[in-house]
Design a protein around this nucleic acid. Sequence first.
DNA 1: TTGATATTTAGACAAATGTCTAAATGTTTT
DNA 2: AAAACATTTAGACATTTGTCTAAATATCAA
Lengths: 86, 86
Amino acid sequence: MNTLFKALNDPTRREILEFLKEKDLTAGEIADRFQISKPSISHHLDLLKQAGLVSAVKEGQFICYSLNTTVLDELLKWLMNFKNEK
Amino acid sequence: MNTLFKALNDPTRREILEFLKEKDLTAGEIADRFQISKPSISHHLDLLKQAGLVSAVKEGQFICYSLNTTVLDELLKWLMNFKNEK
DNA sequence: TTGATATTTAGACAAATGTCTAAATGTTTT
DNA sequence: AAAACATTTAGACATTTGTCTAAATATCAA
């Protein structure tokens, strides 16, 4: 839960998720969409991966990232916990 | 959205929300539940207030905090945006 | 009005975070 | 084999964050 909130607590990372919602992308394609250096994007992708929000598959010299929404169910459950009773 | 995620990105603050889910509490009552100094708790409460997650009402020399779940609807909507299509 | 209580504000400080450049690793292509 | 490309790792640096103590503000009680 901690790593999930941490991963989501950054505009760049949330925007990466938005892009990946449209379609899978390689690290380079993702980096091209931002005015941030590739190593920085790589770091963001690492945090997203740690949180289970994205998965990475190596395809030749590229690494293809895709969105993983199952982790968000946990967050959804956490949210509902507040909206329910009272 | 930014302030909301920022506010939620801390275990202490999330625990404060859990306590406030049970019932409204004064700043002191909240601080008593943690092994953190009162000024630090006060600061956490300020961030939660900035995010609209809690509201504060002065009652004499006390300040009573209560949970405000309406802001979480925004987060819920953001979440659903990912779970929907695709 | 003086003292006690409740809370916040101010300022300091270490740790975490986001960013960068330079270098390393791994894969293709010629 | 060597050069080009894709990505990450390493290390540095400034900013943000969470915490603390000391002091300020405000309210209640004697």
